[in-house]
C-alpha cells in the first residue's frame, strides 16, 4: 500500500467504517457467548431450570477443575486426541495416495468406482461389532473407525480435485514432452492443493466423529467415554463438561488447519 499518498475523505471514511464493522462483529460474538453463559448460570441459580438435568456453567467449571486435580483430564484428552490425530493422518495420507492411484490408472478407478460408492453410503457404525471382534476393545479399534470414516471422503474429494484439472494445461504439459510423473507432480498436485486444504478441514470434523463414535462403542478412557459414562450414571455435569472440552479441542484442531492454509496460500490464485 502506498502510504505517502493522500486519500480522499470518502476513502478514509470507508476504511474507518470497515474497521468499525469488523470490531462490531467480533465484539458481538463474545457478547453472544457471555449472554448465553450468564443466562444459563442465572436461570439455574434462581431455579428456573433444573441444574441437575441442565447443569450450569459454574458446575461445569468445578467438574473440569476436579478432573484436572485428579489428573484424569489429561489422560482422557490425550487418549481421544491421539486417536483422532492418528486416524486423521492415516486417512488423509492413505486417501490421497489411493486418489493418486485412481488418477494414474483410469481403469483402476472405473473398476473400484462402485465399491467406493457403496462404502461411502454405508453407515460406518454398522461395522462396529466387526471392528471390535477384529481389533479388540481399545485404541486400535477406535483409530480404525476414525480411518474408515475419514478415508472414503478423502478419496472422493481428492479424486474430484485431480480430475478437475483443465484439459488445456495437461495438453500443454504433454506438448512440452512431460511424462506422466511430471504431469502429476508439477501440475495435478499443485492444482489440487486448495482442495487438499479444504479436504483437511472436512477431515478434522470426520476424524472427531470417528473417534467419539468409536469411544461410544468400546472404550475405557477418552472424552467419548466420559460422555457415555456421565450419561449412564446421570452425572450431567460430566457430560456437559466433556462436551465443552470437546468443543475446545475440535475448534483448536480446525484453527491449526486454518493457520496452515494461511501460511501456505500467499497471494496466488484468489
Amino acid at each position: 500500500m502506498k502510504t505517502n499518498e493522500k486519500y480522499s475523505k470518502e476513502h478514509l471514511l470507508y476504511v474507518n467504517n470497515r474497521r468499525k464493522n469488523k470490531f462490531f462483529i467480533i465484539a458481538m460474538r463474545f457478547l453472544v457467548l457471555a449472554a448465553f453463559i450468564s443466562l444459563w448460570e442465572i436461570l439455574s441459580a434462581v431455579g428456573a431450570i433444573d441444574s441437575f438435568l441442565m447443569s450450569s456453567p459454574s458446575r461445569i467449571i468445578k467438574t473440569v477443575k476436579n478432573l484436572v486435580v485428579t489428573g484424569n483430564l489429561w489422560m482422557h484428552v490425550g487418549t481421544t486426541l491421539y486417536e483422532t490425530v492418528v486416524g486423521f493422518l492415516i486417512a488423509t495420507a492413505l486417501g490421497t495416495a489411493i486418489a493418486v492411484a485412481f488418477w494414474w490408472s483410469e481403469n483402476l478407478r472405473k473398476i473400484f468406482e462402485p465399491y467406493v460408492i457403496v462404502l461411502n453410503s454405508l453407515p460406518k457404525i454398522a461395522l462396529g461389532p466387526i471392528i471390535i471382534v477384529w481389533f479388540g476393545s481399545g485404541t486400535k479399534s477406535i483409530v480404525f473407525m476414525t480411518v474408515i470414516i475419514t478415508l472414503i471422503v478423502t478419496i472422493i474429494t481428492m479424486q474430484n480435485a485431480f480430475l478437475s484439472c483443465g484439459k488445456g494445461k495437461i495438453m500443454l504439459m504433454k506438448s512440452m514432452g512431460a511424462n506422466k510423473f511430471q504431469i502429476l507432480s508439477k501440475l495435478i498436485l499443485p492444482h489440487s492443493f486448495p482442495s487438499f486444504i479444504s479436504c483437511l478441514k472436512i477431515n478434522v470434523g470426520m476424524a472427531w466423529i470417528g473417534s467419539i463414535m468409536g469411544e461410544y462403542l468400546t472404550s475405557k478412557q477418552g472424552i467419548g467415554y466420559l460422555i457415555v459414562y456421565g450419561g449412564q450414571v446421570f452425572k450431567l455435569d460430566l457430560v456437559m463438561a466433556s462436551t465443552v472440552i470437546l468443543c475446545v479441542l475440535a475448534g483448536g484442531m480446525y484453527a491449526l488447519v486454518a493457520l496452515l492454509e494461511k501460511k501456505t496460500t500467499r497471494k496466488r490464485e484468489r
Binding site: G166, G168, K169, L172, L187, P190, H191, F193, R268, E269
Partner: peptide, 8 residues
Amino acid sequence: QKDELFPW
C-alpha cells in the same frame, strides 16, 4: 486459446 499459465 487460453494462456494456461499455472496460477501457483
